[in-house]
Amino acid sequence: MKTREPLQVLGRLYVPYANWVGETTSQFLCELRDKRRLRGTGCSECGKVFMPPRSVCPTCLASLETWVDLPTTGLLMTYTSVHYSFGREYQPMDPPYLLGIIRLDGADTGLCHFLGETSFEELRVGMKVEAVFKENREGNILDIAYFRPIKAAS
């Protein structure tokens, strides 16, 4: 009897999806796209301001209907650099790139985004950063191109 290598069958999945972001996130992204404005939502029970905005408080499940205007500046809470590539389809930018979590002034939560016009060596936890918007905006979080350190006036 001849012995055989067990068979491996090559398969793939190719299925399109359209995930709806809902009313609250739509409003946030439309204002970002049309007015370069960043607004969060606040919980009157917990007193927290969420950025990006949420419609439901994660702690008490209250409906969050209060919109809070936020500036485009904030503090860098933490950061890292990405060096490996796992395919442009799953990565919005070719590596290497810098990622940070930014807490906008007046918000209680962090927003994850790219860091630009800077280097890993220059970055510090707690430094002031500001949003840089894309010229052509499409209504998603990448309408912010990146955050950059605010240079002290010289």
Binding site: N19, W20, V21, G22, E23, T24, T25, S55, V56, L61
Partner: peptide, 20 residues
């Protein structure tokens, strides 16, 4: 047939809040 006004988390929150 479609609820584009909410995402998955918000949809579930509606049912959870109703049950609570």
């Amino acid at each position: 047939s479609r609820r584009p006004d909410v995402h998955i988390g918000e949809l579930c929150a509606e049912a959870v809040k109703a049950a609570l």
